[in-house]
């Protein structure tokens, strides 16, 4: 039985804009087990990205606790959170976010470069990633020489290069046409098949339906937590009553 990878309880996230307050997340309790495939869905502005940023340790909640792999990460220093991001979390963004002056290979290697992985080990892993994602011919191309699908493949290769436990994708197909989007989703799902926990934000119902579990957000709150085919995953989490 897999343990709970992510435990969010009582999470609040409030943005202050001048005098007004925006409750991007209200009293959120979510529990996600290792190896799950979760789609976060909901209308625009419902707090999906905010939730993903919190889970990815890019943002901190105003209230509540977040336990990642069993330990409370809300109290960690920025430095410690950076290390967790480096080793446990991979991000895939809607707009790819590749560094334009670096080649595909260098972009893929970037997390390892930042983490100080030895060059030899880096080259080895990048070569394998290029092969796995069919980018061998594109290794020395810069992002502006790549198609959208190729760019997102580079981004996915980069997100997985540190072999994280968790991949967070915020509308990864938002800038792609349907068939390329399909291809990218299959890549991500393939990672999930290998045991990586996958959380995908999308507002495309058909894409969301592919996930075994869907979190439906509305106005910062969790409206629905739905399993496509309940497989007894709930028992690892202590759901609030």
């Amino acid at each position: 039985m897999s343990m709970a990878l992510i435990e969010l309880s009582g999470i609040e996230r409030v943005f202050r804009l001048g005098d007004s307050e925006v409750h991007a997340l209200r009293h959120l309790d979510v529990c996600i087990a290792a190896g799950e495939y979760v789609a976060v869905m909901g209308p625009s502005g419902s707090g999906k990205s905010t939730l993903l940023n919190l889970i990815g340790l890019l943002d901190r909640p105003n209230a509540g606790t977040y336990r990642l792999e069993g330990c409370d990460v809300t109290t960690l220093s920025a430095e410690e959170q950076a290390h967790l991001r480096s080793e446990r979390i991979g991000f895939v963004f809607q707009s790819f976010h590749l560094v334009p002056r670096l080649t595909a290979a260098e972009n893929i290697a970037l997390p390892m470069t930042l983490a100080g992985v030895a060059p030899l080990r880096r080259a080895e892993r990048v070569a394998r990633a290029l092969r796995d994602y069919g980018l061998e011919q594109r290794a020395n191309h810069r992002p502006d020489q790549l198609s959208g699908g190729q760019r997102q493949r580079v981004a996915i290769a980069r997100a997985t290069i540190m072999q994280p436990a968790l991949i967070l994708a915020d509308e990864p197909t938002g800038n792609l046409d349907r068939s390329t989007g399909e291809e990218v989703m299959r890549l991500l799902e393939g990672l999930n098949d290998q045991g990586v926990t996958l959380i995908v934000v999308t507002h495309d119902g058909s894409l969301g339906a592919r996930a075994r579990r869907q979190l439906l957000m509305a106005d910062g709150a969790l409206e629905h937590d739905r399993w496509r085919s309940p497989q007894g995953l709930t028992d690892v989490c202590v759901l609030p009553t």
Binding site: L58, A82, R85, S86, I89, P111
Partner: peptide, 16 residues
């Protein structure tokens, strides 16, 4: 700025 945000998301510390 966007690149700096990306580097942070990829695990770069403030010191880096």
């Amino acid at each position: 700025t966007a690149e700096i945000g990306l580097l942070k998301a990829l695990g770069a510390t403030g010191a880096t």
